[in-house]
Design a protein around this nucleic acid. Structure first.
Lengths: 200, 200
DNA sequence: GTCTATAAACCGATAGAC
DNA sequence: GTCTATCGGTTTATAGAC
């Protein structure tokens, strides 16, 4: 069956004036982007094909290329905006609560842009590089809130813990971490985080 | 240059008796396995090609298939034997030290079989499944050493922390975690681990 | 025991019809 | 604005020569 004809042409539609065309284009682009996000998060960069994205969005593969230029550019569009939270600051006492609040938020609502990056960070060089830049920024600001000679190392361990927890819950999904409420998780993590933040 | 002729034929060699052939075969298989391990660890399952493995081992691509049957079977051969440490037990007080000792060992010497699995666990279903089985076993035994109603969750968080640290050090390699001695790392981790293990 | 040749499938990307 | 057709490249895997 070479012609599923899903959606976009809309046989009995209004005559396409300039505005209607632009609107149609925006909506189709958004549908492609949503489908690409879902597939990149689910299977990673390498296993996600332009053809599969097009099929999931109900359009042709050529159209995806026409709108986004290349597979790499499409991936960058998906992961753009997946920036980490504004980075905690202030007195060391409050930093723990801020970090835990951000983690709880990430555990409750799936941050799809970040998940697309996380899924491919071990196998795609571009994803690894983008992730590295993001964590570097976050780590530096986190280290400033730690009053200890090994603040950098402590910040790095905190980030490793956070990434491990998020990966387990949203990506690996194997174990108790994805059936437990965020509140229960951060309650157990609070004392551990305190020991890593306690510099002075 | 279609004929690098690297190694195996050995022009002026002894006439291949039965034993010599078997020895040659074993050595060639070992070379292929070593090359495959290196590439799987470095770039993951999808980006590692049979052709690249063959070239790195100095043999032909057809020979790799002849010996191992398929790419998937080759990957299983590489990751087999990558079993986790015997799992800690005993009084809760000693468990922390045992886990930290195992982690220090994994941080010092790269456990290549485990690293091959870790590299591909987010993008390859088989790798994810094998990892899931391994961590399930380890988590159950670890939970038995924790005297608390939420022992399973605590064990899962400990594993998430360990995986996060190992991934950062050996795979991502971005940050202070891969330039710090294992002793310094586990020294910072000990108090955090204690809070996660403290059930009673 | 090792390699050559090739099959069969799939990919990203391009050019152009409608 | 959307789709058809296709090119050129790469992959795993097989069959068979030496």
């Amino acid at each position: 069956m070479p012609k599923p004809t899903a959606g976009p042409p809309a046989p009995g539609d209004v005559p396409p004036r300039g505005d209607a065309r632009a609107g149609q284009r925006r909506r189709t682009q958004a549908r492609i982007l949503a489908a690409a996000t879902e597939l990149f998060v689910a299977t990673g960069y390498e296993r996600t094909t332009i053809r599969a994205v097009a099929q999931a969005a109900g359009v042709d593969a050529g159209l995806v290329m026409h709108y986004f230029g290349s597979k790499q550019a499409l991936f960058e569009q998906v992961t753009r905006g997946g920036q980490l939270p504004p980075a905690p600051s202030g007195p060391p006492d409050q930093v723990a609560d801020q970090v835990l609040a951000q983690l709880a938020e990430a555990l409750a609502n799936e941050p799809v842009q970040s998940l697309a990056l996380l899924r491919s960070m071990l196998t795609n060089p571009e994803a690894a590089h983008t992730m590295g830049e993001g964590t570097l920024r976050y780590r530096n600001q986190l280290a400033q809130a730690i009053d200890a000679p090994d603040a950098d190392l402590r910040a790095a361990l905190i980030i490793a813990l956070i990434i491990g927890v998020i990966v387990d819950r949203h990506l690996l999904k194997s174990g108790p971490l994805n059936t437990t409420t965020p509140a229960d998780i951060i309650a157990l993590l609070r004392p551990a985080l305190r020991t890593l933040l306690a510099g002075a």
